[in-house]
Amino acid sequence: MASTTSPTLRQQRLGTELRKLRERAGLNTSAAAGLLGVNQSRISNIEAGRYAVSADRVRAMARMYSCANDALVDALAAMTGGRTRGWWDEYREHLPASYADLAELEHHACGLRVALVLHIPGLLQTPEYARAVIREAVPAFRSYEVEHRLSHRMKRQGILHAADPVPYTAVVHEAALRMQFGGASTVRAQLRHLLEVSEMDNVTVRVIPFAGGGTFPGTGQSFDYVLGPVPQLDTVQRDVAPGSQFADADTELAKYRAVVDRMEATSLSSPESRDFIHNVLSSM
């Protein structure tokens, strides 16, 4: 069984979910190790994501933990095996680990629901607009750091154009449409691009206008809600200064699911949103 000292977010999540199953069964690591015929440290390492685990082992653990949720067990079994390399691994030497973890998370996502207030979502950005946004970081990135982040962001967009593209819904506040990242010409090109991608079958763009009335859901939070194969494996991603912050606790998922539900309910429909973006573009 292979081990690693730097497990990916996906490996850590598998371990976390196995720990949750064990704890719900009322077993400590010693008792679980006895049932599986391994030493206690093996259980700890599996739950920390430091040891690869087979699908058969995951199913055996689920049976011992009396987990009757077949869909969850199947999803966990699909997350097993050794670490597989993706295009994002080439960036691990140049960017914080969270950048690679985000790309891997999106690659395996069953759907994405994104809420943005002050800028266009990264997966819908043009290179010029993305470069302007990245350059606003404090402290400022060096030129080569900007280009590494730009290249990474552009490659992430591939999930929207794959043979089996991920369903993607972006709720964007009017403020994001009017922010002048890169200047007027860059923003006009960005809005034209946003209109183009909003016509894709797997992409939905919805706008919350200033004049929408009522309170703003979630007090202006920006985040990605990443859908897993089952709701228990959903993940919330928030942008923070070093890169990304991830949350998967049941209470956090419920809160952010409610926020994005309310934001979508507050927003204009897709056709109304396209008309609104056209009007903003015409006014520039």
Rank of each mutant, 00 (worst) to 15 (best):
T4P: 06
T5H: 09
P7T: 08
L9P: 01
R10W: 11
G15T: 02
L18H: 06
K20M: 08
L21M: 14
L21Y: 04
R24Y: 11
R24G: 14
T29N: 02
T29G: 04
S30F: 11
A32S: 09
A32Q: 05
L36H: 02
L36S: 10
V38C: 14
N39Q: 15
Q40G: 06
I46S: 01
E47V: 02
E47D: 09
Y51K: 03
A52W: 02
V53P: 03
A55Y: 06
A55G: 09
D56G: 04
R57I: 00
M61P: 05
R63P: 06
C67P: 05
C67Q: 13
C67H: 10
N69A: 15
D70V: 04
A71M: 12
L72N: 05
D74A: 14
L76M: 11
M79F: 01
M79D: 12
G81D: 04
R83F: 03
R85C: 02
W88A: 00
W88E: 02
D89L: 04
R92P: 07
E93N: 13
E93V: 08
L95S: 03
L102C: 10
L102N: 00
L102G: 00
E104H: 03
H107I: 07
H108F: 12
A109Q: 00
G111M: 11
R113W: 01
V117S: 08
V117N: 03
L118S: 06
I120P: 00
P121I: 11
P121E: 10
L123V: 07
V133M: 09
V133H: 01
R135A: 14
R135F: 09
A137L: 05
V138G: 11
F141T: 08
F141N: 06
F141P: 12
R142C: 01
Y144L: 10
E147M: 12
H148N: 05
H148F: 10
H148P: 01
R149S: 08
H152L: 07
R156W: 03
Q157E: 09
I159M: 13
I159H: 07
L160C: 14
L160Q: 13
H161M: 07
A162D: 14
A163T: 15
V166M: 10
Y168H: 13
Y168I: 09
A170F: 03
V171K: 05
A176F: 11
A176D: 09
M179P: 02
Q180F: 06
G182A: 10
A184V: 15
V187R: 05
R188L: 05
A189P: 01
Q190T: 03
L191D: 08
R192K: 12
H193P: 00
E196R: 14
E199R: 15
T204W: 12
G212A: 14
G213Y: 12
G214H: 06
G214R: 04
T215C: 13
Q221F: 04
L227R: 04
L227Q: 09
G228Q: 13
P229A: 15
L233G: 04
T235G: 00
R238L: 07
D239K: 00
S244F: 00
Q245F: 07
A247H: 03
D248W: 02
A249Y: 05
D250N: 09
E252R: 10
A254D: 12
A254M: 11
K255W: 12
D261H: 14
D261P: 07
A265C: 03
T266K: 13
L268R: 12
S270M: 09
D275Y: 10
F276I: 03
I277M: 15
L281Q: 10
L281P: 01
S282G: 11
S282R: 13
S283V: 04
